[in-house]
């Protein structure tokens, strides 16, 4: 059962609460909100479906090479074998088992999607926090930089960055992360602007808490909801961006099994082997769909209105 806020021991009249007491009160308030969130999330069917698929995908990404029925790089089979019991997704133009390549490819897509979202989140949240909290010239400088990033469509920015720094997994993660920093920064800045004026922030300031303490102990934990929702969408967008870059031949190492590269290879053989194009694409669609469903359910459960609605 939720612990009611009124359980908190009242302060002696006329005394100011200290830092720890304020934080304890706030943690209790967050715990109540947290259990309400879990109840709501469990009732969101789309979030559950999305979460189950994402969990399954993570397992496949971790144990992929072990459960793949064939060596994904071995060109031991007939070229362009159509889907069969032995090769459920057929074979590709090199005679490799497509099903095994898609299973193993999950690791690359998922890793890049999560890594890019994490990097974008850390940098974007820091920038949004600084801009929203301090305001003034710091806000102006950061906001103009964010506007500048926003002026470049994602694929153009990532393609440009990969063109300059070269392809490869690390550079792809950096390029995608840079392209999505502005999304996080905007969301966090907007949230911080409202939280800055909340009573508990003013109370913390009144008892002499430092800016860093207020930002990291009071404002940031209360901005978690929109950040989590944005991060969920960002993983999906990162996977889409990675597949786009790989499709253009600007992604990870061309010998690596990835969904985007499989699609790229299949493009030249659409007329004779449809399966090479169809199945890797379906893997991307289901993954991004699951992340979007999960993100949408999370947004409803956390009652965040401003994120991901575009």
């Amino acid at each position: 059962m939720d612990k009611p806020l009124t359980d908190a021991r009242p302060e002696a009249p006329g005394s100011l609460p200290d830092h720890n007491r304020l934080e304890q009160l706030e943690e209790e308030r967050r715990a109540t909100t947290g259990s309400r969130f879990w109840r709501r999330l469990r009732s969101e069917r789309k979030a559950l479906v999305g979460a189950l698929f994402v969990a399954a995908l993570l397992i496949v990404a971790i144990v992929g090479p072990v459960i793949a029925p064939h060596d994904p790089d071995a060109d031991d089979f007939m070229l362009f074998e159509s889907p069969s019991m032995d090769h459920p997704f057929g074979t590709d133009s090199f005679g490799r088992d497509l099903f095994s390549r898609i299973i193993v490819g999950a690791r690359v897509s998922v890793t890049i999607g999560f890594a890019a979202a994490a990097v974008a989140m850390v940098i974007g949240v820091a920038l949004g926090l600084l801009a929203g909290y301090y305001g003034g010239w710091i806000d102006t400088v950061i906001s103009r930089c964010i506007d500048l990033l926003w002026a470049f469509p994602v694929i153009i920015l990532t393609v440009g960055l990969v063109a300059v720094f070269g392809a490869g997994a690390r550079n792809v993660v950096i390029a995608i992360a840079i392209a999505y920093i502005d999304d996080f920064a905007r969301v966090v800045r907007a949230k911080v602007l409202s939280l800055r004026e909340e009573d508990y922030t003013l109370a913390a300031r009144a008892v002499g808490a430092s800016d860093r303490r207020i930002m990291f102990r009071h404002i940031l934990p209360n901005s978690a909801a929109p950040i989590i929702v944005q991060a969920t969408f960002a993983v999906g967008l990162g996977i889409l961006a990675e597949s786009g870059l790989s499709f253009l031949g600007l992604g990870v190492n061309p010998t690596t099994a990835t969904w985007g590269l499989s699609l790229n290879e299949g493009r030249d053989f659409v007329r004779q082997a449809w399966w090479i194009s169809v199945f890797p694409g379906l893997a991307i669609v289901f993954t991004v769909l699951a992340l979007n469903l999960f993100g949408d359910g999370l947004r409803d459960a956390l009652d965040v209105r401003s994120v991901g609605e575009v």
Partner: peptide, 22 residues
């Protein structure tokens, strides 16, 4: 709508070629 936002446009393009052209 959910499927629409989750689909890479280049993949959907290939599917359209398969269906309406091939």
């Amino acid at each position: 709508a959910f499927i629409g936002v989750s689909m890479p446009s280049f993949w959907f393009g290939i599917i359209l070629i398969l269906l309406f052209a091939v």
